[in-house]
């Protein structure tokens, strides 16, 4: 019976390209696809929401260690990546714009540009990850660069073994420069590839300074979490910094994974657009991929300040 009615359908009605059998017309299909995509984005928001909740909980429990750790991320690269993503969002929006206009060439160009900027984002991310690898900031034991004591020639000079590796200049502020020079900074020796924290406790010191003026700066969790027997315990402090880096890697990692999926989507879109599959009447796939791409952009718009920027003023303000 289905085949019977189907053939009649084909014969007597104009069958728009891309219209699927369960829909009456293009409008119904577009509405369905669009609502479906938004429902998918809602679930994506909740998916990342679990991570943001974890971030919120630990940031509010250990704000100092988080600021300490966050200050060590390279905000310049983070900011650059934000700009890269914003450009890619613009080109994506324009790809939809041109698809709507039925302009195939501009559409293809915009999709290619989007892919280039998306790849650039992942490239910068890779540079950042490499830097974390080189400096012992990957929270997983054994996943960092392994440097034996004998590999290091002199303290204070660049290690020989790292010639080939790309190390970012991490010093951005005066305070960090002075911190790098003072005795908190140790040469990178890491025979087992463990998580290390060699960059001192400047934010903590800043807070202790403030506490002296009568303000309660440390949270209840911090009063327990940073001290052993009433003494500051650098290992416990490092553990909290490690939690930050764990969250950092999970959040940016999942975000990067979404970028990879997005790029896959773009490749398919490029192929389809190149063949001229889309027209002013039928461009829903471009539009839906665009929604996904912008969503991934929005996630980063929040990740950037939360992971890279919050707590930066602790260093900028204080000359101590």
């Amino acid at each position: 019976m289905a085949t019977h009615s189907d053939t009649h359908h084909e014969e007597f009605h104009y069958h728009a390209p891309g219209l699927q059998h369960q829909f009456e017309d293009m409008k119904q299909q577009e509405e369905s696809v669009s609502i479906g995509m938004w429902a998918f984005l809602v679930q994506e928001i909740m998916f990342f929401g679990g991570l943001f909740t974890a971030y919120l909980v630990f940031r509010s429990r250990f704000p100092l260690a988080f600021a300490e750790a966050s200050n060590h991320l390279n905000a310049f690269w983070g900011g650059l990546n934000t700009l890269v993503l914003i450009v890619s969002s613009l080109t994506m929006a324009l790809a939809v714009f041109y698809a709507q206009k039925g302009n195939r060439n501009m559409q293809v160009i915009m999709i290619v540009l989007t892919m280039i900027f998306g790849t650039a984002f992942l490239g910068v991310k890779a540079i950042e990850y490499t830097d974390k690898y080189n400096t012992g900031l990957i929270p997983v034991t054994g996943w960092n660069k392994k440097v034996k004591e004998s590999d290091v020639q002199h303290a204070g000079e660049p290690a020989k073994g790292s010639e080939g590796a790309f190390v970012l200049p991490l010093i951005e502020t005066k305070a960090e420069a002075s911190a790098a020079a003072d005795d908190h900074e140790k040469p990178y020796i890491n025979p087992n590839g463990e998580f290390q924290w060699n960059s001192g406790r400047h934010v903590f010191d800043y807070a202790i300074e403030k506490e002296k003026s009568g303000k309660a700066y440390l949270t209840a969790a911090e009063r327990v979490g940073y001290f052993s027997n009433g003494e500051f315990d650098p290992n416990k402090y490092r553990d909290k910094i490690r939690i930050f880096y764990f969250i950092y890697f999970v959040m940016t990692g999942l975000h990067a994974l979404h970028m990879v999926v997005g790029l896959g989507l773009m490749s398919w879109l490029l192929w389809a657009a190149f063949r001229g599959s889309f027209s002013g009447e039928y461009f829903a796939p471009v539009e839906m991929s665009g929604l996904y791409w912008h969503f991934v952009d929005i996630v980063w718009i929040f990740l950037f300040p939360l992971l890279y920027l919050l707590g930066r003023h602790f260093l900028a303000g204080g000359a101590h």
Partner: peptide, 10 residues
């Protein structure tokens, strides 16, 4: 947002 993060607004 990049530059404002360095201001101490506390």
């Amino acid at each position: 947002t990049y530059f404002s993060s360095f201001w101490d607004l506390d």
